[in-house]
């Protein structure tokens, strides 16, 4: 087997795989969320109140192997007492068909403001996590996620 031939064959295969990926997206994706639509979803969550950066640790891989299942976790600095706790955590995206991912409702009985789940991402994009506190303030963290295509996708 000639090394040069192999390389060119692999490149052709890559081009085909990438081409097909792009085609699938155009054929099957309906209207997508946009950063503007995400802003509207966030406004609905916060009631238009100011969102401050900080207090939220948003852990999600920068580079993921398959957008079908992207693990994430959110930890918010909070004593989680009756007087001072996190009431809700909202996760929002800017390029999936819908801007909402999940809204978690917490109570002081959680003991810690810590949640983890897995999300679908149909493209490389920014994801926002927003915590609502019992004093009515909102805190956020933003992460970029680069989504790569797996090899040999299902037909």
């Amino acid at each position: 087997m000639n090394g040069g031939l192999m390389r060119s064959a692999t490149t052709r295969r890559n081009a085909l795989a990438l081409g097909l990926g792009a085609l699938t997206i155009t054929l099957t994706r309906p209207a997508r969320a946009t950063p503007e639509i995400m802003e509207q979803a966030i406004k609905a969550f916060t009631g238009g109140k100011r969102v401050q950066e900080g207090r939220v640790t948003f852990d999600i891989s920068l580079l993921v192997e398959n957008g079908n299942s992207v693990p994430f976790s959110v930890l918010v600095e909070s004593p989680m007492t009756k007087a001072d706790h996190v009431t809700r955590i909202g996760i929002f995206n800017e390029k999936n068909p819908l801007p909402d991912v999940a809204i978690f409702t917490l109570t002081p009985r959680c003991g810690r403001a810590s949640v983890a789940s897995r999300m679908r991402l149909n493209d490389t994009q920014f994801i926002t996590a927003i915590a609502e506190l019992s004093d009515g303030s909102y805190w956020s963290a933003v992460s970029e996620v680069i989504v790569t295509l797996p090899a040999c996708v299902e037909d």
């Binding site: 192999m6 064959a9 052709r12 295969r13 795989a17 990438l18 192997e65 790569t148 295509l149 797996p150």
Partner: peptide, 23 residues
């Protein structure tokens, strides 16, 4: 149609990449 054998990817090019995916 691409005329590949299993061995060409998984022996000769294992550890390389197909698109972004590791072989």
């Amino acid at each position: 149609q691409l005329n590949f054998s299993c061995a060409q990817c998984h022996d000769e090019n294992a550890g390389g990449h197909l698109g972004a995916a590791l072989i």
